[in-house]
Computed example of a mutant assay.
Amino acid sequence: MKAAFIRETGAPSVIQFADVPDPVPGPTEVLVKVGAVSVNPIDTYIRAGAVAMISKFPYIIGADLAGTVESVGSEVKRFKAGDRVWGSNQGLFGRRGTFSELAAVDERWLYPTPARETDAEAAAGALVGLTAHVGLFLHANLAPGEVVFVNGGAGGVGSAVVQLAKAAGAFVITTAGSETSLAICKQLGADLVLDYNSHNLDDQIRAFSLPHGGVHLWFETQREPTLDRTVSAMAPRGRIVLMAGRAARPEFPVGPFYVKDLRIIGFAIFNGAPEEQRAAADKLNTLYEFNRWKPQVGKTMPLSEAAAAHQLQEDATVKRLGNLHGKIVLIPE
């Protein structure tokens, strides 16, 4: 089979696309004919060596996938040949990556794909959908009627947070940096969409949220959180979710934080137990079926262009060059 892999960490140019041996599924694994994969920031950090997750080389890159079951191991109970599935959390902790024509994945990390959902959608919504759902509900206990703020509502995780929070009955404030992104956020259902370049952004957030008591849940997707401004906007007993900014070292406003009884919740989705992520996946599938969750597919490319896709993702995430709308999706040829 063809696969995108690396023999060493480094720039996107280290990614090769060539023939590798077909995977042989173990007793609890499912062999998936890959229909689509998507690119995540964590994929670029692992490839670059910034996150030490690679157990051996050559290393097939990628965490997300969607496709059709080719065969199953002797102990697999939930799937059979011909089923459509999606999943995430591959390429981590010794698990094989997904950027290949075939992937052998333990059934614990796979979920049925809704009939109307395309493989491109399922792959695009995999890691970001799980991250948003686990963060909002398992960790932050979002309740109907609360105010949620999320930076970058047209991005991968941001667009998922907007949709899932609205589906749960929350009031959602989000930001964007271009006319196209602002329009996407409005289409996703955000109650208030603000230009993050605005000189009075914080005043606009407060004007909307204060009648509700302030921001109850601040979902931070940016690499450099600004906790002074965040804490000042929070409602008493509000929650701040941090799931980005690995190298960030912001100043922390201790006094304003504790006198409001606030909480900060940090989490990385790849630490989640398979059962926790499966529960979130089941909810995402139901929301999709009821038109309350629509993964955002952005640029679509052939799998053979994995190096260019990584460069595009890295430029947008790290170098902040241009705007990515939706997820980069790659399709095996």
Rank of each mutant, 00 (worst) to 15 (best):
Q163A: 08
S181K: 03
A160N: 07
L227C: 10
R206C: 13
V215W: 07
V162D: 04
Q187M: 07
A247F: 06
R229F: 02
H199S: 10
F208L: 15
V259D: 14
E251G: 13
V161I: 00
K186L: 00
S178D: 02
F171K: 10
R223H: 02
R249V: 13
S232P: 05
L242Q: 09
I184W: 08
K166H: 03
A190C: 06
V254H: 11
Y258H: 13
H216N: 15
M243K: 13
A235P: 09
L194C: 07
F208C: 10
R239N: 05
R237K: 07
R206A: 10
F208T: 05
G255D: 01
L192P: 08
G189T: 04
G214I: 04
L182A: 01
I240C: 02
L242G: 06
L227Y: 08
G189R: 09
A183Q: 03
D203H: 14
L164A: 00
L194E: 10
M243F: 15
V254Y: 14
T180H: 02
L217S: 02
V231D: 14
D202W: 01
P236N: 11
T221P: 07
G189L: 15
F171Y: 12
T175C: 03
E251Q: 10
K166Y: 05
V161W: 15
P250Q: 15
G169D: 02
K186T: 00
G189H: 14
A183E: 00
M234I: 04
S232I: 07
S232M: 14
F257Y: 07
E220C: 09
G177C: 12
V241S: 00
A247D: 15
P256R: 11
V241W: 07
D203C: 05
C185K: 01
K166E: 00
A183G: 00
D191G: 08
V162I: 12
P225F: 15
T226G: 14
P225M: 15
D228A: 07
L217D: 09
R239S: 03
G214N: 04
A207G: 09
L194K: 10
S159P: 06
V254E: 03
S181E: 01
A168H: 03
Q204G: 09
P211H: 00
S178R: 12
F257T: 14
A248C: 01
A170C: 02
A248V: 03
T174V: 09
S209D: 07
V161P: 13
M243Q: 15
H199M: 14
P225Y: 11
E179H: 13
G213D: 12
V172L: 05
V241E: 06
S209F: 01
V193A: 03
S209N: 05
R239W: 01
D191Q: 11
E179Q: 15
S178P: 06
G189Q: 03
G255Y: 13
I173M: 01
A244T: 04
E224D: 04
F252Q: 01
V193F: 02
Y196T: 05
H199E: 14
W218Y: 11
V162M: 15
A248Y: 06
L227A: 09
A167T: 12
L217P: 15
A233Y: 08
L227N: 10
R246P: 10
L201C: 03
S159T: 10
T175P: 12
F257C: 07
